[in-house]
Design a protein around this nucleic acid. Sequence first.
DNA 1: AACCTCTTCAACCGCGAGGCT
DNA 2: TAGCCTCGCGGTTGAAGAGGT
Length: 397
Amino acid sequence: MPIHVRDREKGRLQDLNRDIFCCVSPSIYQSDAKRAAFVIIVITIISPCCDKAGLKKGPWTPEEDQKLLAYIEEHGHGSWRSLPEKAGLQRCGKSCRLRWTNYLRPDIKRGKFTVQEEQTIIQLHALLGNRWSAIATHLPKRTDNEIKNYWNTHLKKRLLKMGIDPVTHKHKNETLSSSTGQSKNAATLSHMAQWESARLEAEARLARESKLLHYQNNNLNKSAPQQHCFTHKTSTIWSTKPNEGTGDQQLESPTSTVTFSENLPLMIMPLGIPTDNRNRNNNNNESSEIPARMEFAVSSSTSSDVSLVVKEHEHDWIRQINCPCPTEGIGEGFTSLLLGDPISRSLPTGKNEAPSSSVAGAGESEFNYYEDNKNYWNSILNLVDSSPSDSQAMFRS
DNA sequence: AACCTCTTCAACCGCGAGGCT
DNA sequence: TAGCCTCGCGGTTGAAGAGGT
């Protein structure tokens, strides 16, 4: 039965086996069979992380908090699984991790959500659905758990009161009409949301890593001022096409700088989402490179210029184009883009490109679909644009 | 004051993704 | 490549507090 002891010297079972063997009398090693049997039994007993026996559950006491905090401040969390024992806690690693990430972390803001935060949550939820961790990356110092709770206990009810379906973010009376048709356009928005969701998740991951590194660095050098940096430079869900780009910066997605917390709008650019090759011959020089299917473009707007990033569906490359911002205001741009406004649809997406409305093959029904959603999005954006007191009045009804 | 109902939110649970061996 | 392990996510639960009768 050698497989049960094979990792004694190295590998994943190393720690586990050390813990087991250190409390075993040497006489137990008289035969491999005895040793193996012992290991099997002990692993069965202690292996589950959330082993019920002897581990405390329920609310944390101040003493437990202090122990966890002190341990992490000194050593970092390391392996959550082994942390409780090292920190002297009768908890499972999972419970410790949750307590740390949702409560003890020093970069957590507690207390009431601001109107701005509420609006951000609603906007992002409309786009991403219940992807709380992705939403949380755009609300600095708020945890996904907190946002989830706040949504379930406050915002969802408020939307229902306003006659808005909290799942679809449409007015109730619009849900029926949209469900009878326009599936193509629903799919369009769905595609947009999926890609944006993927991007946000990638950013969330990077932000977490960045935060963790930063926190650990701070622990290593405690004389340095405590900062909890959320910056992250790269968004790696898209790769560049080989031989394209002029330097390292080309590998960086311009989307990575978008944050709602800084009042920079997240822009989703529907490029028409052709499902055939109509786009292919619109560019003389790049005809062979024009993607057959452009899902959408995501942009950050930090000035009057807009950077477009085009994701090519099959070959996974990006193209960046800088062009003047086609809309007058940030909010307006966001609205029109989300709504598939014909103005933004005519954005140049490449040289000599036909208006994207024609590329999209937008018909009457498609426009109606966007019109149907316009009221909702405009109401959201009106809240953003209006004064806090106005928003407050509307939200606190 | 006692009881009941509702609300809130910290914590738990189960699952899946991703990394490591 | 398979199996194992850890971690993180999203849904859910239940204790505690608030408010109403």
